[in-house]
Amino acid sequence: KRPMNAFMVWSRGQRRKMALENPKMHNSEISKRLGADWKLLTDAEKRPFIDEAKRLRAVHMKEYPDYK
């Protein structure tokens, strides 16, 4: 299984929150909104998620060195 990218790290928490706030919203609509919201974030706002994704990638490479 591939490590999560920055968007996936960020959206994991946001998806739960949005689903709780909008229980009747379909998952596909939540995904569209999350994508739009992510694009509106500044680089500074994205930085912690980018850093976490880099950390996850490094751990994955160490655990699965032959993964392609």
Rank of each mutant, 00 (worst) to 15 (best):
K1V: 11
K1G: 13
K1P: 10
R2D: 14
R2L: 11
R2E: 13
P3C: 05
P3N: 11
P3Y: 07
M4D: 14
M4H: 07
N5I: 00
N5D: 15
A6Q: 02
A6M: 03
A6L: 02
A6G: 14
A6K: 01
A6I: 01
F7A: 04
F7E: 06
F7Y: 08
M8C: 08
M8G: 09
M8N: 08
V9K: 00
V9W: 02
W10G: 01
W10D: 05
W10V: 02
W10N: 02
W10S: 05
W10K: 00
W10L: 02
W10H: 03
S11V: 04
S11H: 09
S11F: 03
R12C: 13
R12M: 15
R12H: 14
R12K: 14
R12N: 13
R12E: 15
G13W: 06
G13D: 13
Q14F: 04
Q14T: 09
Q14A: 12
Q14E: 14
Q14M: 09
Q14P: 01
R15Y: 12
R16F: 00
R16Q: 14
K17M: 06
K17G: 02
K17H: 05
K17F: 03
K17L: 07
M18L: 12
M18D: 05
M18E: 10
A19S: 10
A19Y: 05
A19F: 11
L20F: 05
L20N: 08
L20A: 13
L20E: 15
E21R: 01
N22F: 08
N22H: 11
N22C: 06
N22L: 05
K24V: 05
M25W: 07
M25K: 01
M25E: 06
M25F: 04
M25C: 02
H26R: 09
H26E: 13
H26N: 11
H26M: 11
H26T: 15
H26D: 15
H26Y: 02
N27P: 15
N27R: 07
N27V: 07
S28A: 12
S28V: 01
S28P: 02
E29I: 03
E29C: 00
E29M: 03
I30C: 02
I30A: 02
I30D: 05
I30N: 02
I30K: 04
I30G: 01
R33F: 08
R33S: 05
R33K: 14
R33Q: 13
R33V: 07
R33N: 07
R33T: 09
L34A: 03
L34G: 01
L34Q: 03
D37V: 10
D37C: 07
D37S: 11
K39T: 06
L40Y: 03
L40C: 14
L40K: 14
L41Q: 02
L41D: 04
T42N: 11
T42Y: 00
T42A: 04
D43V: 06
D43F: 05
D43M: 11
D43R: 03
A44T: 11
A44M: 09
A44V: 09
A44K: 08
E45S: 01
E45P: 02
E45A: 07
K46I: 01
K46H: 04
R47K: 14
R47S: 10
R47M: 08
R47N: 03
R47V: 03
P48D: 02
P48S: 09
P48G: 02
F49Y: 14
F49W: 09
F49P: 01
F49V: 01
I50A: 09
D51N: 11
D51A: 08
D51G: 02
D51H: 03
D51Y: 03
D51F: 03
A53Y: 01
A53C: 03
A53D: 03
A53N: 01
A53K: 00
A53E: 08
A53G: 02
A53P: 00
K54L: 06
K54F: 12
K54V: 08
R55E: 08
R55M: 08
L56E: 12
L56C: 11
L56N: 13
R57I: 09
R57G: 13
R57E: 13
A58E: 14
A58R: 09
A58V: 10
A58D: 15
V59A: 11
V59F: 11
H60T: 12
H60V: 10
H60Y: 12
M61Y: 12
M61G: 13
K62Y: 11
K62L: 08
K62R: 11
K62E: 13
K62S: 12
K62V: 11
K62D: 13
E63T: 05
E63V: 06
E63P: 09
Y64R: 14
Y64Q: 15
Y64K: 14
Y64G: 15
Y64F: 15
Y64D: 15
Y64E: 15
Y64C: 15
Y64A: 15
Y64S: 14
P65F: 07
P65S: 11
P65I: 04
P65R: 09
P65D: 14
P65N: 13
D66V: 09
D66M: 12
Y67V: 14
Y67H: 14
Y67R: 13
Y67A: 15
Y67M: 13
K68G: 11
K68D: 13
K68F: 15
K68M: 10
